[in-house]
Nucleic acid binder design. Structure first.
Length: 1010
RNA sequence: GCGGGGGUGCCCGAGCCAGGUCAAAGGGGGCGGACUUAAGAUCCGCUGGCGAAGGCCUGCGUGGGUUCAAAUCCCACCCCCCGCACCA
């Protein structure tokens, strides 16, 4: 691996080094003093926020960083708002991926060894040590343990305000007991069933395979297609040619059966019948619930010219040769419907032209007599849709697979949606989709139907290179999310929850409606065994649905020795296949009491041989923290975990413990590209504190994108964020260096620009509070950091230009900083903590309350006035640019008579009510006070409507005062002498401009240099 | 196919729900200037077209419509992205 260096490091290396030291310092302080370890405080409102625990099969990356950072910002905000916040973490190890990695490292797989060496080297610099650690990875538990420990380091170096005491892994023996409890509750509620199920399967490895076990599994999507088997009895024999089709309803249009002359078919005993099918098909069917014994072989050639009986219609049709037939697709036997299947149509044409083959098999007469049989009426198509499409696409022959596949797709889709069965079928007038169901039913009644599963794409291999097929598992355990009573409860819970951003609610509803049977256990992997059938292991998405409850007591279980006891009990339950009643009822009694309040604490204490207080405390602690107030995650989990989270809570807990809110953020890409291992562009989280900085990354993550859009991590943009951070840091340290002013001035004697800044500060506090309450994280950061940064810069610039007194500037700056540091704490906690202490405080700003808003200091008029001044500066600059004048003196005529302002205010009101320009003018002129000024009113109203006069204006007094106070600032911006004239009483007005002054739009006269 | 999201200036991206202050925030990139021995960093200005006074024209996927007024509302069309399960 090349040595990584970020752009920020190159440009701001020294600065980063400085703030990274600061970060480490405060992390030490925080975690040493355990300020984020949460204890119940009766009477104090609590906030329980969780982010799904990570699956620890590798190191965390910036994608985790985004989600956990957002979670931490919220946690820190809530803490500042006076909540007792619990933000815990644990580690997910259930399932097959970690197991598979261990297996492959054991086997010496070079890819995995390379990858995992790299992961480890992110944390361990000595190559010998890396090797040593890697050697332990042949045991999956060591992988889990290693990564769990480095995740903690990474999370701490991001400054996350988590309670690390409560951590556990999903493989802990006591956690097994918890899951045993959960699954018996679910089973007793009737939510668990058993049945058959189709999975991806590797016969060579003897196990079901997941995406991560498949070669290129993260790049392809594999469909399991359901083929219909249709049995054709060979005329004069008890053997069946078994064809596979996706379109059984086309059986009425059959003209013949295709075989490939070169294929060696097998004769197999299948469930007591004799089937002729391809060898791969026989093999696959053996895994799909059929009892298959191969007893003989027959070459395709030998079948040609024979006849089979088509079921349902009892028609004799010939067996003919076709080269498109593939032994690896379906059964290697195809029944031909040339009117509606492009392949069949083209194969028939090919065969008719192929004199050699016709002669070879002596089938010339038979073939010549075959005509397609049309059985489906399709609007906008002729009698033979297959023919139409084949001709339209210009298919050459049956070797032209690409076009034929396309043609097949078109005909399939068109007929499925728009086709109607004709009179020569069993179901005339029915739509194709309905006819399909009925035809299957009819075939089945005749015993002529079967099912076969096939993968699409067909050639799928495990990472070890073994073929993958579809297999049927007969005794699969399911969670029955389709249970109507369960589903109703889940919906009730969802409807009571906040979903932020709200647009994802629809996704939840869709998922809820569609959820039904979900396999919940596998035969492989880490995790908890299904207690009553321990050959199965509860699968990883099914054992992580209500574990937030476990956070509330995990540290007490670990700290009291209960973990050992529960672990032993769990083992007894599993070893006895659920028959050890004593062990099982102890587990049930314990969790029933702690989580549900059922039963008696004394009894439970007795069963577990512990103090009654311990049990009661756990119950109290659970009851204090629950429910989950907020679960923060990514939308990719809506279709699985987040929905299961709701279902299981609704199914197991009483309503008062149902979760309150789910918040979501989208994923992270890097430099415009998806991050993936194969691209090698994954940004590991451990790079953040070493090659960027935690606060810089937090600031960037929070500001660069809204929660509901993808965050594109771009080093160039990070650099620009860093440049702001540098500016911020310099200004803040200047303020601190100037010290805290000892006296505060009288608010009313302050300069206008200082009052503007104070107003800005208070408005920002008010606005960002609203942003945070609605989880608008980006809005909060943009205002709290970026906007206030430009405000203070603007303030300092203006204050300097117009000579505001040093004391006043220092006072205002300090006023700002005292509040700023507190509202920035959630997003950049380390720098905030440092600033707070440099300001002379000794408490932790991380625990300081959010600042109060002084509503009375918020003054919109000051903003408007400043806007008008800025706009006027722009106007002057534009005039200078266009005229290319060299200005000597610029006269600005501000503030026409008060009457003008009154008219504009009334105009704004009328237009706001929806009045047109004409109506507004008429309404105003109708008033006695404006009766004789129709011209003036009309002029002002039209200037307002066309935008010459800004939508928001200040009073004449404030506007005039702003210009007067800011004269020197204007001067500095336009590089000329500036004279502010009262438009009602100008001292110098050679071109009579003053009368053009409008409210919010002063008139300008520029005197050229001679 | 079903469901969801989206198309904005050279690029990324806000705005759209609650139409006007939008030639359209912010950033990147580019250009010019200040500073510097120089480079980098930093700061200032410009970055749709036209314009000898703050203006005008074109413009937010395409085509229509509603309105005094549309990037924002309505209709149609085109294009792009994501999810669809047993897998974390």
């Amino acid at each position: 691996m090349r040595k990584f260096k970020s752009k920020v490091e190159e440009i701001y290396g020294d600065f980063l080094k400085e703030i990274r030291d600061i970060e480490r310092k405060w992390q030490n302080e925080w975690y040493k003093s355990g300020i984020f370890n949460a204890e119940p405080i009766p009477g104090k409102p609590k906030y329980f926020i969780t982010v799904p625990y990570p699956y620890v099969s590798g190191s965390p990356h910036i994608g985790h960083g985004r989600t956990f950072t957002i979670g931490d910002i919220v946690a820190r905000y809530k803490r500042a708002r006076g909540f007792n916040v619990l933000f815990p973490i644990a580690w997910h190890i259930t399932g097959t991926p970690i197991q598979s990695v261990a297996d492959r490292i054991m086997k010496g797989d070079p890819d995995d060894i390379g990858l995992y060496s790299w992961y480890v080297s992110l944390y361990v610099s000595d190559p010998e040590q890396v090797k040593k650690i890697l050697n332990t990875f042949t045991n999956p538990w060591n992988i889990a343990q290693f990564f769990a420990s480095v995740y903690i380091r990474d999370f701490m170096s991001m400054g996350y305000s988590m309670d690390f005491r409560r951590q556990f892994t999903t493989g802990d023996p006591d956690y097994n007991a918890f899951i045993i409890w959960q699954y018996y509750r679910l089973r007793n509620a009737g939510y668990i069933t058993q049945g058959s199920h189709v999975v991806l399967y590797s016969p060579d490895e003897g196990q079901a395979v997941g995406e991560h076990d498949i070669k290129g599994g993260d790049e392809i999507t594999i469909d399991i297609m359901e083929f219909n088997l249709v049995k054709f009895r060979l005329d004069g024999s008890n053997e069946y040619l078994v064809a596979a089709t996706l379109r059984p309803e086309t059986i009425y249009g059959i003209t013949n059966v295709w075989v490939h002359p070169g294929i060696r078919y097998v004769i197999a005993d299948v469930n007591g019948e004799r089937w002729i099918i391809s060898r791969p098909a026989a093999w696959k069917l053996g895994y799909q619930g059929y009892d298959v014994k191969v007893i003989g072989e027959v070459r395709g050639e030998e079948l040609i010219g024979k006849y089979v009986i088509a079921p349902l219609i009892n028609r004799k049709v010939p067996v003919l040769p076709a080269s498109f037939v593939d032994e690896n697709t379906g059964t290697g036997i195809v029944y031909s419907v040339p009117a509606h299947a492009p392949y069949d149509y083209v194969a028939l044409i090919d065969l008719k032209k192929d004199e050699k083959t016709l002669a070879k098999y002596g089938i010339k007469d038979v073939v010549e007599s075959i005509e397609p049989i049309s059985i489906i009426k399709l609007p906008n198509y002729g009698k033979y849709p297959a023919k139409d499409v084949v001709e339209k696409l210009g298919v050459k022959d049956q070797g032209d697979r690409e076009k034929l596949d396309e043609a097949t797709r078109i005909v399939y889709r068109e007929e499925f949606y728009n086709g109607v069965m004709k009179e020569n079928t069993l179901f005339p007038g029915l739509g194709v989709n309905e006819a399909r169901e009925k035809t299957i039913e009819a075939l089945r009644n005749q015993g002529a139907w079967g099912k076969m599963y096939e993968l699409e794409p067909r050639n799928v291999y495990t990472r070890s290179g073994n073929p993958v097929i579809a297999a049927v598992i007969k005794d699969q355990w399911f969670l029955n999310y389709g249970n109507p009573e369960w589903k109703a409860k889940a919906f009730k819970c969802l409807n009571s929850m906040k979903i932020i951003p709200e647009k994802y609610r629809k996704n939840f509803e869709d998922v809820f409606n569609w959820l039904s049977m979900r396999p919940c256990a596998r035969k492989r992997g880490l995790g908890t065994r299904l207690p009553w059938d321990p050959d199965w292991i509860i699968e990883s998405l099914s054992d992580s649905t209500i574990y937030m409850a476990y956070y509330t007591i995990a540290h007490r279980i670990k700290g009291s020795g209960l973990d050992k006891k529960l672990g032993e009990l769990a083992k007894r339950v599993i070893d006895s296949r659920g028959t050890d009643n004593e062990a099982l009822s102890s587990i049930m009694a314990f969790f029933n009491y702690v989580f549900l309040g059922e039963g008696d604490a004394g009894k439970v204490a007795e069963l577990l041989n512990v103090d009654k207080d311990l049990i009661e405390n756990m119950r109290r602690e659970f009851d204090y923290w629950y429910p989950v107030d907020e679960r923060h995650s990514g939308p990719d989990l809506i279709g699985s975990h987040l929905s299961f989270f709701i279902f299981h809570h609704a199914g197991i807990f009483p309503e008062k413990y149902w979760p309150k809110a789910i918040t979501l953020n989208e994923y992270v890409i890097r430099e415009g590209m998806k991050m993936s291992r194969s691209l090698g562009n994954v940004l590991p989280l451990p790079y953040i504190p070493t090659h960027y900085s935690a606060d810089l990354a937090r600031l960037y993550i929070a500001s660069a994108a809204d929660l509901d859009s993808t965050l594109d991590w771009r080093d160039d943009d990070v650099v620009s964020t860093a440049s702001r951070l540098v500016r911020f840091w310099n200004i803040v340290n200047d303020i601190i260096r100037n010290g805290k002013p000892s006296v505060s001035p009288d608010i009313n004697s302050l300069s206008l620009i200082t009052r503007w800044l104070i107003s800005k500060v208070n408005r920002t506090i008010r606005d960002v509070t609203m942003d945070m309450e609605s989880e608008n994280i980006r809005g909060y950061v943009l205002k709290a950091f970026f906007d206030l940064l430009s405000s203070i810069e603007k303030y300092l610039e203006i204050a300097n230009a117009i000579n505001v007194s040093k004391d006043e500037v220092a006072w205002a700056s300090w006023y700002l900083l005292e509040r700023w540091v507190k509202i920035l704490q959630p997003v950049m906690p380390h720098l905030a903590e440092e600033i707070w202490h440099r300001m002379g405080n000794t408490t932790f700003v991380s625990l300081e309350p959010w600042p109060e808003v002084s509503e009375e200091l918020i003054n919109d008029e000051l903003d408007i006035a400043l806007e008008i001044v800025e706009r006027t500066i722009e106007d002057v600059q534009e005039i200078l640019k266009v005229t290319e004048m060299k200005p000597k003196v610029i006269h600005i005529y501000v503030g026409p008579t008060n009457e003008n302002y009154a008219i504009i205010n009334e105009t704004a009101k009328l237009v706001g009510e929806g009045k047109t320009m004409g109506e507004t003018i008429r309404t105003l002129v109708a008033k006695p006070e404006y009766r004789r000024m129709a011209d003036k009113v009309a002029n002002l109203v039209s200037k307002y409507i066309d935008g010459t006069i800004p939508r928001r204006i200040a009073s004449r007094d404030v506007e005039l005062r702003a210009f007067k106070e800011l004269t020197n600032y204007i001067k500095s911006k336009v590089n000329a002498e500036v004279v502010i004239q009262d438009a009602t009483n100008p001292t110098y007005d050679p071109t009579n401009k003053a009368k053009n002054a409008l409210p919010g739009r002063p008139a300008i006269y520029i005197e050229k240099e001679k």
